[in-house]
Nucleic acid binder design. Structure first.
Lengths: 341, 341
DNA sequence: TTTAGAATTGCAATCGATTGCCTATGTAAT
DNA sequence: ATTACATAGGCAATCGATTGCAATTCTAAA
């Protein structure tokens, strides 16, 4: 019914006939306080059910042990895993996570970043929206001296910590594997080339072909196929060619790979005998399809943890370290869809 | 390099030769301020790149437009969807979401709830951990007059808003559907009966059988099968019976249903002809398996939105309304694994 | 016994925004 | 011209915890 007044350090001080400052020191485990007094305060605080007012504390200290997280969508497997890993690290340090979605919309991203800055968060962790736009808002974060860690989809030019997958290497490995399995005309489903990650994957694809002496053919590279539907459409187009590909690397996502699988199966094409398929992300469903889909695991939970650790490391070094890029090495998960030997 | 000092209302006041209070009023769009002055302040604030110190504001106002969310695991499809829906509603109201995971561990749940209380969050949204334990921490939330909304897995006894699926009805519908498809010995995979949701599902199962004149057989009810592995084991056991079931309702999760599917397929049993399978949750992969799995959609994003709306409604009514339970009606998704007519 | 210095504790300012109350000015009615 | 009142803006307290500095007490060395 009636909001029972919160116990403050003043209440405790009064009860014990102490100054509030002493109570504060006792509670913050300062060494400028007598051990007995400290014990007494602690005991009384517990009895009175004292809970620190975090906002007052943060205001005074000028800090806020909170990390803002901005992702395109929370309910995407990759991102929710990142958050899960991150939370594990931050919780143990007594830090909070404030989560925001940009919904892939740039203006919304700007909004949420501003909101986070107002709260004086100690850091912002972001994977930028697919929609292109200026990165002034991120520059502002840096100007304010707020930690900024980018992951996965990053703005290259900004000098921040970046935690990314080695997309180049992953793509290279995937294509190399396809070649080793005897596939000779390997098609690529590309993602939006504005995003760095997709450019890198393409480069890896090209490099692997060249390294093994295979031609890089423009006709085998299909742009913007990053949903299941687009993957299916791309597949139909590709398979109608005079010399259709004998493998498709859906570098965009496993969803695209699924589209490939369904479209090809519908046409009566055998996987992996007639067509090899490799996806990207290691979505849970790739294990379940028939045949199961080879793909690339990004260690997303690990990535989240790495981001958290970076944040705390940088806090300690107070920003004097060189902002470097951490490359998490992804792992090729070979499954049935590419094993024909 | 050097942390540039934040602009405060005092800086603006000084520049404009005003009192801080006037600046504050202008910024908070009070009506006790001249329109011209207001405009001037707003303009100057923008020029000086003023950003409100949220902590100071919250401290003074004694409120914190933040909702704490406690879920067992963030990276479970159902929960991340809840959060996604919730975020949509709260962001538009200028509220923050602080996300915590209990990892299904009760002590951890208590910890995070305490941390949230300290921050004076205006509300806590929770789905309790599977591990059993006291609900004192939740009672304390109520005592503090902090909004508490439970969803999905709820503590019945606590008088709070509850947003749940109508598990009874969903299970009833699923079993009814199985019966209509001609299945006669329908087994049930149960979840931990400490959790209300699983009890309700069992009740729905029993009721549907009875309503259609079929016996309720203890031998067909298999306890605690809520992972893929346990689902597979349960299936092996069930299929070894003298009179094996001709359908299995994995009321625990789609993962269990997947285990059933794999175990049965491995034994050469045809789905849906020899065995019908129905899961629960509408995980994305249920569409993809072969055959696709019938399941129950919980409208998780909608649920998240509902929770958000409830929070704001209750804020307005300042807790004088009756704490009611909102039942979201789930929907049976009929797919191939149960369609044999 | 005196005194330097360590150990405790208290005082009061501070973080930045909000708000109740008061004053001064302007406007309108009598 | 006088009173009444609305409007605009200032003053200062306040939210609760922290912390630099001062004050006091205690310890131990000289």
């Amino acid at each position: 019914m009636n909001r029972q007044k919160r116990t403050t350090i003043y209440d405790i001080a009064q009860k014990l006939n102490l100054a509030a400052s002493s109570v504060s020191r006792a509670l913050s485990n300062s060494d400028k306080i007598n051990a007995e007094t400290k014990a007494l305060v602690l005991k009384t605080a517990a009895e009175m059910n004292y809970q620190q007012n975090t906002m007052a504390s943060n205001l005074r200290k000028g800090s806020n042990p909170t990390i803002g997280v901005v992702v395109p969508r929370i309910n995407q497997y990759f991102f929710s895993n990142i958050i899960a890993g991150l939370e594990e690290v931050t919780f143990n340090k007594g830090y909070n996570l404030v989560i925001c979605q940009s919904n892939e919309v740039h203006s919304r991203e700007v909004e949420v970043v501003n909101a986070l800055m107002n709260q004086n968060v100690s850091g912002i962790v972001i994977s930028i929206a697919a929609e292109k736009g200026s990165s002034d808002h991120l520059q502002q974060v840096l100007d304010r001296n707020i930690q900024l860690i980018q992951f996965d989809r990053v703005v290259e030019e900004l000098e921040t910590f970046k935690v990314v997958n080695d997309n180049y290497k992953a793509a290279y490995e995937a294509v190399k594997h396809l070649i080793e399995q005897g596939y000779r005309r390997i098609a690529l489903l590309e993602g939006p080339q504005e995003l760095h990650i997709f450019r890198e994957r393409k480069e890896g694809y090209v490099a692997a072909l060249q390294a093994h002496g295979y031609p890089v053919l423009a006709e085998l590279m299909y742009a913007n196929a990053w949903t299941k539907e687009l993957g299916a459409i791309a597949t139909s187009k590709l398979l109608e060619m005079e010399q259709p590909p004998d493998a498709i690397f859906a570098s965009t996502s496993d969803f695209a790979a699924l589209g490939v699988l369904e479209a090809a199966t519908a046409k009566g094409i055998r996987i992996p005998e007639d067509l090899g398929i490799c996806g990207y992300s290691n979505e849970p469903f790739t294990e379940i399809t028939s045949p199961s889909i080879s793909t690339i695991d990004q260690f997303s939970v690990e990535m989240g943890k790495t981001i958290g650790n970076l944040h705390f490391q940088e806090m300690e070094n107070s920003g004097m370290v060189i902002k470097k890029t951490v490359n998490i090495k992804p792992k090729l998960m070979v499954r049935k869809s590419t094993q024909r030997i």
